[in-house]
Simulated assay, not measured.
Amino acid sequence: MTALRPERETDTSYGDQSYGGPSALGDTAYLPPMDDETVALRIPDPPPIPASAGTAASPASGVPEGGRAARRKAARRRGGRHGGAAESAPPEDGPSGRPLSRVEARRQAKLRKPSPAVMASRAIGEVFITTGVLMLLFVTYQLWWTNVRAHAQAGSEASSLQQDWASGKRAPGVFAPGQGFAILHIPKLDVVAPIAEGVSNKRVLDKGMVGHYGEGALKTAMPQDKVGNFGLAAHRNTHGEPFRYINRLTAGDAVVVETQDEYFVYKVTSMLPVTSPSNVSVLDPVPKGSGFTTPGRYITLTTCTPEFTSKYRLIVWGKMVEERPRSKGKPDALVE
């Protein structure tokens, strides 16, 4: 005969857990609440801890031991009361978590300090960078600013000469070093530059002007002289560079010298591409290497070569073909 069970002791087994009868935590049995939206299987929530069980909990349960203050402190360590992310603890000073001793601190500071080789390489790198910047500034000054300044100075000198000529102001027969007295025209190269006495860099050439060999042992004739060689020099690069492209001149190209009273027209006859800077015979009254054999009225243009160096000299020679008073107007070479 099967024994009867009381109605209160209904078996409520669920998986491995049994709910029914007196609970280990109290007299009332725990039943999981019914989900209003679904009746699918689910793991029931853990039973609440009754007040009679106290605040202590085993370390395995994960609940902090102690009272309310201990629980708050543990909650702050886990991320605060509101579930924020836990703050990371500051790194320990030493491998074992203890503060470093003075000897250990000095040793680590010495290890962090750059070695002499690293410091030397940094210093050398800074020197190279500074040197590169200075060289770039110097090149910019030489190739750009000197031209800007020289063009302004040469243009001012040419305008001053033309104003003096227009006003009837007479120029002296002998010119002081650095004094302008004529204007050079090279139509093929679109060159218009004042001619000043002397070939000094500071007084003449660096100002963008063309210099006349008119002093000392290198003194040459003037355009109005009935015989002789009118010698001129100018920069090929930087400082206005009036003679930069005279290597492009060919036989028959015109070179005109404008003075207060006359225009002197020369025609290019020959060129010496390379010669020594000490070859002053190119300025002789009958210049050597020019092809001229008898005295005449010649012009010699001299400049440096190759470009951006002063190792050699480039020479261009011409012969006067026309002397035209200003009262008759400009020569054909300047009108075309």
Rank of each mutant, 00 (worst) to 15 (best):
G291Y: 09
C304R: 06
W317G: 02
K330D: 05
V316G: 02
E307H: 15
T293R: 01
G296H: 06
G329Y: 04
R326Y: 01
E322H: 13
T309N: 01
P325S: 00
T305I: 15
K288C: 01
S290L: 05
F292K: 04
S310D: 13
F292M: 10
T309A: 02
V321L: 06
G329R: 05
I299W: 11
K330S: 06
V316P: 07
P325T: 01
K328A: 14
V316C: 10
E322W: 13
S290I: 10
I315L: 11
P287K: 01
G296F: 07
P331W: 08
F308R: 10
T300A: 13
W317P: 06
V321I: 13
T294F: 07
P331F: 08
S327F: 09
I299M: 10
T305Y: 08
R326K: 15
G318D: 04
E307G: 14
T294R: 11
P306R: 03
P295N: 06
R326H: 03
F308I: 03
L334F: 04
V335I: 12
Y298C: 05
R326A: 04
P295K: 09
K330W: 07
A333H: 14
Y312M: 15
K288F: 05
P287S: 00
K311V: 15
R326Q: 03
T305H: 10
S310Y: 14
G296Y: 08
L334Q: 02
L334S: 04
S327P: 04
F308H: 08
G291N: 03
A333T: 04
G291D: 06
E307F: 13
G296V: 09
E307W: 10
T305G: 05
Y298F: 15
E307Y: 13
G318M: 07
D332M: 12
C304S: 06
S327Q: 12
I299P: 08
T303N: 02
C304Y: 07
